[in-house]
Computed example of a mutant assay.
Amino acid sequence: MSNNTTATVTLTQKNYLAEAKMRNHFAVIDEPLDFGGDDNGPTPVEYLLTAIGGCVSITLRMYAQRKGWNLGKITVNMSQKEQLTPQGIKKSLVEEISFEKEVTEEQRAKLLEIAGKCPVAKMVKEATEIESKITI
């Protein structure tokens, strides 16, 4: 199966400001002022959190529509958690999902299972291989 999803990111000459192009869409990436950036856009980690939250919410909506469940608005709050361990700082992601409409305990359990099937979250959880090369 071939998936031709691509993104091109170009770091500009202005500190850490990067310009990204995905299909016909554009975005900027930057670091906050206290990390040497100019705070012109979200950080790469914030985009990762957004990508997972967006994917989870879309995956849940698709499933709920097939089941005929009206969940109303779906909100996914994503955050990065850092914990000091004897081995150093351990980073993890926290995902909190809520629905505008009430759901039963049975629906809640199934929706939590389906949330785990979001393709973007699976890429992160399964440590997707990245092939890196420098082109001329």
Rank of each mutant, 00 (worst) to 15 (best):
M78W: 10
F99A: 06
S79M: 04
P86S: 10
E96R: 05
K67T: 08
L84R: 12
K67N: 07
E95F: 01
L71A: 12
L93C: 06
E106S: 07
E96T: 05
L93Q: 07
S92K: 03
Q83I: 11
W69F: 11
E105P: 04
N70D: 10
K101Q: 15
S92F: 05
E105Y: 01
W69L: 03
K101E: 09
E100W: 12
L93I: 13
K73C: 08
E100G: 13
W69S: 05
V94A: 08
P86Y: 03
S92W: 01
Q80L: 13
P86E: 14
G68F: 04
T85W: 14
K90Y: 10
E100A: 05
K73D: 12
S79A: 11
Q80S: 12
L71W: 15
Q80P: 03
N77E: 14
I89T: 09
T104G: 05
L93K: 01
N77F: 02
Q107I: 06
K90C: 08
S79N: 06
K67H: 11
K101Y: 08
K90N: 02
Q83N: 10
W69I: 07
Q87W: 04
K81V: 15
K90M: 06
E82D: 09
V94S: 06
E96D: 11
E95S: 12
L84C: 04
E95W: 05
S98I: 02
Q83W: 07
V103Y: 03
E100K: 08
I97L: 03
Q87P: 01
E106Y: 05
P86N: 07
N77M: 09
S79R: 15
K73S: 13
Q87K: 15
L71M: 12
S92G: 11
K91C: 04
E95I: 07
G72P: 06
V76I: 09
N77G: 08
S92N: 04
N77Q: 13
Q107P: 03
L71T: 12
N70Q: 11
T75C: 02
E82K: 11
L84P: 06
E102G: 12
N70K: 14
K101R: 14
T75M: 04
E106L: 00
K67G: 03
L84K: 13
P86R: 13
S79L: 01
K67C: 07
T104M: 00
I97N: 02
K67I: 07
Q83H: 15
S92Q: 08
K73I: 06
I89P: 09
S92R: 02
E95N: 04
E105G: 00
E102N: 15
L93R: 05
W69Y: 12
R108W: 00
R108V: 01
E106N: 05
Q80V: 12
E82M: 13
E82P: 04
L71P: 15
R108F: 00
L93A: 01
I74L: 01
T85Y: 07
E105D: 14
L84N: 10
E105C: 02
G68N: 04
F99T: 13
M78S: 13
T85M: 11
N77K: 15
T104A: 02
Q87G: 05
Q83F: 05
K73W: 00
E106C: 01
G68A: 01
K91H: 11
T85S: 13
